[in-house]
C-alpha cells in the first residue's frame, strides 16, 4: 500500500515546468484551482483541461507515474461525487428508488464537482512533482513573508511542511517494515472482521508513532547541531529569482483567469 503514495513526491527531471520559479508555480496553481470553482460550462472545462494537459506534457512527468500516485484519492473522489449526486435536492427528479433520488441540479452539480476534483488533484500534484519541497518552502516563505508582521510564523510553518514532505518516504518505508515484522509474528492483516482489523492496527500504529517521535527528536538535535536558529539571518543556496519564462507564464495565467471568469459570467 505505502509504495503507491507517490503523491507529493518530487519527480526529478529537467523541464520547462521544473525550471520555473516555485512562486510562479504556486501562484499558477492557486489561480488554476480558484478559476475551476467558477466554471459552469463544459466548454470552459475543456479549456481548463487543455491547459492542464499542456502543463503535464511540458513537465515530462510520466502520466503513468502521476496516475499511480493519485489512485488512493480515487475513492475519495468517487465518494464525494456520489454523495453530491444523491444529496443535492432540486425540482426536477430524474430518477427515484425509495428514499434515493437524483435531481437535475444534483446531477449537474455532481458532474461539475467531479470534473473540478479531477482537474484539481493533478493540477496540485503537478506542483509537488516538479518542485522540490525545499523550493516550495522557499517560495511560500517569500510569498507569505508579509504575514510575519501579523505574527504568523511563516518560516517555521514552511520548514515544518518541507520536513513533513521529506519524511513521507522514510515513514512509509518504516510502516512497511513494521507490517512485515508483525506479519512474521503471525498477524494476518488481510483477514478478520472490521473491529478485528481495527484492533490489528495497534501493533502498527504504536511503533510507527514511537519511531516518528524518536526521529523528530534526533532530527531536531541534528538541526540544532548545524546551527539552525529559525529563519532569521538565513541565506539560501538557490535564491529565488524571476526570469523571462516566469513573467511570461504569470501573464498567461492572468489572461487565463480573467478570460475564464469573463466567459463563465457571459455564457
Amino acid at each position: 500500500m505505502g509504495k503507491d503514495i507517490t503523491i507529493g513526491q518530487y519527480y526529478p527531471a529537467d523541464s520547462f515546468i521544473h525550471r520555473l520559479d516555485p512562486r510562479t508555480k504556486l501562484a499558477g496553481m492557486v489561480v488554476y484551482v480558484t478559476t475551476l470553482f467558477f466554471l459552469r460550462d463544459l466548454r470552459l472545462f475543456a479549456v481548463a483541461f487543455i491547459l492542464l494537459a499542456a502543463a503535464v506534457a511540458l513537465s515530462k512527468v510520466p502520466l503513468r507515474y502521476m496516475l499511480r500516485g493519485m489512485r488512493p484519492l480515487a475513492w475519495m473522489l468517487a465518494l464525494s461525487v456520489l454523495f453530491t449526486l444523491f444529496s443535492v435536492t432540486g425540482t426536477t427528479v430524474l430518477w427515484q428508488w425509495h428514499f434515493l433520488k437524483i435531481t437535475e441540479t444534483g446531477l449537474t452539480t455532481a458532474i461539475y464537482l467531479g470534473l473540478r476534483l479531477c482537474f484539481m488533484i493533478p493540477g496540485t500534484c503537478l506542483l509537488t512533482y516538479t518542485t522540490t519541497p525545499t523550493a516550495i518552502t522557499d517560495g511560500m516563505e517569500k510569498m507569505l513573508g508579509w504575514m510575519n508582521k501579523l505574527g504568523v510564523p511563516v518560516h517555521e510553518l514552511a520548514m515544518v511542511m518541507s520536513l513533513a514532505l521529506r519524511f513521507i518516504p522514510v515513514l512509509t518505508e518504516e510502516l512497511h517494515r513494521i507490517m512485515k515484522a508483525q506479519t512474521a509474528r503471525g498477524i494476518d492483516f488481510q483477514e478478520g472482521s472490521l473491529p478485528q482489523r481495527v484492533r490489528k492496527l495497534i501493533p502498527l500504529v504504536i511503533p510507527l508513532f514511537v519511531s516518528a517521535i524518536r526521529r523528530s527528536d534526533e532530527l531536531a538535535m541534528a538541526m540544532d547541531a548545524r546551527c539552525y536558529h529559525g529563519g532569521e539571518g538565513r541565506t539560501n543556496l538557490k535564491p529565488l529569482q524571476y526570469r523571462g519564462r516566469d513573467r511570461m507564464l504569470q501573464a498567461g495565467m492572468a489572461v487565463y483567469m480573467i478570460g475564464m471568469l469573463y466567459l463563465s459570467v457571459k455564457l
Partner: peptide, 28 residues
C-alpha cells in the same frame, strides 16, 4: 550522528549540504 536518515534535512544532496552554511548567513 548515528542514524544517517534522521539528520538529513534537505531534499537534494546539494541542498542538504548547504543547510548548515545557510544558517550561518553566507553569501550565495
Amino acid at each position: 550522528f548515528q542514524n544517517p536518515e534522521n539528520q538529513i534535512v534537505g531534499n537534494l544532496v546539494e541542498e542538504d549540504t548547504a543547510f548548515g552554511p545557510e544558517n550561518l548567513g553566507l553569501s550565495v
